[in-house]
């Protein structure tokens, strides 16, 4: 039986809370780095097909900057921090204090901008995961994050490999950080947390939620 069939609405709420706590810490960290207010969305926990997963990030051909890391330890899984190119431009501008910087016009991208994004991804995913670790009392060891600027399909499929051996669907915890007052949806960053199939039971057990009911 697929692990997804065992997931009920209580489980989804638990996962939502994980996204909530993780993203709240990441938003605080981002706010500190950029020295401005950051809004976060109510987390979305969805069971999606792989194609739908691509659509969550703007479709398989959409070009994005993504920081990817693997989770090891008690819970294994994949995590992405995904920025649209305009959002990458904005965040780098804020970090280096240069308003005329345009990320999209760089070819190839400079060491400086890649390093900014890598560090941003590193700090944000680090704060997300350390809060998750505190909350669940589980040991989590994130890998060194790796940055790539390419099509959504090409980057996200890599995080689906473990899941794809078991299922054609993924459970994704999706949270969005956004510049305050930006209604356009352009200046945002998505966190995608994709626990491996075996990890759901570990997460639920750590929080005292039964998995066999």
């Amino acid at each position: 039986m697929s692990f997804i069939e065992k997931i009920n609405s209580l489980h989804l709420d638990v996962l939502k809370e994980i996204g909530n706590i993780g993203a709240a810490h990441a938003a605080t960290a981002l706010s500190g780095i950029l020295n401005q207010k950051i809004e976060m969305s109510v987390p979305n926990v969805r069971i999606v097909s792989f194609d739908q997963m691509m659509e969550l990030a703007g479709g398989p051909e959409n070009v994005v900057a993504s920081v990817f890391l693997r989770l090891e330890g008690d819970v294994t899984g994949s995590m992405f921090f995904i920025l649209s190119l305009p959002a990458a431009t904005y965040f780098i501008q804020q970090m280096i204090g240069n308003d005329s910087f345009i990320f999209e016009s760089e070819s190839p991208h400079s060491e400086m901008s890649l390093s900014c994004l890598q560090e941003l991804g590193n700090i944000l995913s680090g704060s997300y995961l350390s809060s998750l670790s505190d909350f669940t009392n589980l040991y989590l060891y994130p890998s060194v994050p790796s940055l790539t600027i390419d099509m959504v399909g090409a980057t996200i499929s890599f995080g689906l490999l473990e899941l794809s051996q078991v299922s054609d669907y993924a459970i994704v915890i999706d949270t969005v950080l956004e510049k305050e007052g930006d209604g356009s949806g352009a200046m945002n960053g998505h966190f995608f947390l994709l626990p491996d199939p075996d990890s759901f039971e570990v997460i639920f057990n750590s929080l005292g939620v039964a998995t066999d009911g």
Binding site: M54, P60, M151, G153, S157, F158
Partner: peptide
């Protein structure tokens, strides 16, 4: 057509 081939 297929879009966004990475390791696939």
């Amino acid at each position: 057509r297929t879009s966004g081939l990475g390791s696939c």
